[in-house]
Design a protein around this nucleic acid. Sequence first.
DNA 1: CAGCTTGTGGTCAAAACGACAATAAGGCTA
DNA 2: TAGCCTTATTGTCGTTTTGACCACAAGCTG
Lengths: 243, 243
Amino acid sequence: MTSALISAAKSNREPFPVPEGTLQGLSIDNLIFGLHGSELKVLLIKHGEGIREGEWALPGGWIKQNEDLREAASRLLRDLTGISHPYLEQLKAFGKVDRYPAERVVTITYYALISADQYPLVAGFSASDASWVSAFDTPALVFDHKEILTYGIQLLQHQVRHKPIGFNLLPEKFTLLQLQELYEAILNIKLDKPNFRRKFMKMNLLTPCNEKQKGVAHRAANLYRFDKDNYSNLTEQGFSFEV
Amino acid sequence: MTSALISAAKSNREPFPVPEGTLQGLSIDNLIFGLHGSELKVLLIKHGEGIREGEWALPGGWIKQNEDLREAASRLLRDLTGISHPYLEQLKAFGKVDRYPAERVVTITYYALISADQYPLVAGFSASDASWVSAFDTPALVFDHKEILTYGIQLLQHQVRHKPIGFNLLPEKFTLLQLQELYEAILNIKLDKPNFRRKFMKMNLLTPCNEKQKGVAHRAANLYRFDKDNYSNLTEQGFSFEV
DNA sequence: CAGCTTGTGGTCAAAACGACAATAAGGCTA
DNA sequence: TAGCCTTATTGTCGTTTTGACCACAAGCTG
């Protein structure tokens, strides 16, 4: 990332001036989730200049005249993390009259799920610019960003039980225990290992890699990958994912 | 509804001029669902003047400077139907660059569920202005409204299975068969009567009214109402609604 | 009254769930 | 190398839920 981009991203949440060639009164904010160890984290930006210096915010920015909403969210995510094809879905538009200082700004929020191996470190940004924070225990956030986060977590908790999106938080190859810990982290629950395993295996959504975990000080687990194609087949037949 | 309001609503989807005192480049569109008999319907507006004359569209309008997004959606719904406290949730923001002619307009869509007894007839509008159309079989719609409808139906089908929102489509007091037919209509499936009944009763979400159906040419069924308070209690205890 | 339609309760086998015991497979350490 | 420790994986079993279907009840209609 060029330093111009970094500087743009750093100041992208500052009230004014809004860059030329972008839509007025409309912004994008991204809720970027990651799973670190077995903790659900969210990527926050610390404002480096201006009035909001030192405060934490969701990464966001403005929408260009000639780009779709999703494109804008995707571009902002890419500029920040370098990730080009994330799992990215619209969360909600937030538009309370006074949510943003000085001017009426409606923000359209997206949430992204990225896996730790796609984005092991905060590249381009120093640790003081951006950092992963426990999603359930963040510092105070600017504007209505806390409300956005709370809403996003609730949606994530709901979605993860009803759609197979959790895989996006894992590396391509993963063990069943990793998958289980993902659910435990997001939903704040404890699950029974043998039962969880059977339930998932019966869905026929996991393809064994015929490979084992490496570098662990105990019996190595089998690695699996999410079988997207079979998921498409199954959903066409009326299959519904539920955990 | 005054004729001024009617006229405003009639022309509210015409490209320009946009009324003074509203946000630029941002509109609201409402997806209003109703259950008529046992068919899922959606409320559409036929454009009465201008270029789009005769074409069907979702009812919508512009957002005032001093009103929240939800307020705007709620006001537009109220002006159209007279209903003040509908079930109303944000659907999604649609913002493709060319979705709207001549100018970039992002629209934030809401979906409402209203019961036939709240809105038995199209009041204020003549039948040629607004009408209930089968949600699964509509005429062609302007702009990207068909896409919005498709997305809305999918969300409704998902939500209705995972949250007790279906009740909003029924009158306050309803029979179990009405409830079952609601699910059959929205999900396009057939359900077993005794099993459906037991499943629902076990959830403890229905309070018997100790009243029976009237005016039917067969054995009268018991009437129930949705127990919102108990639903709150149960969800706090980790209860999750699934049909 | 017989006949029709819908409501409501019962049954039963199959499947799913949940708790927990038992065994397998590795690496580690003495 | 022999145990020890940790995690993976399989098995078992009683309970609950599901789904298909039968039977009877209740009320209106002719």
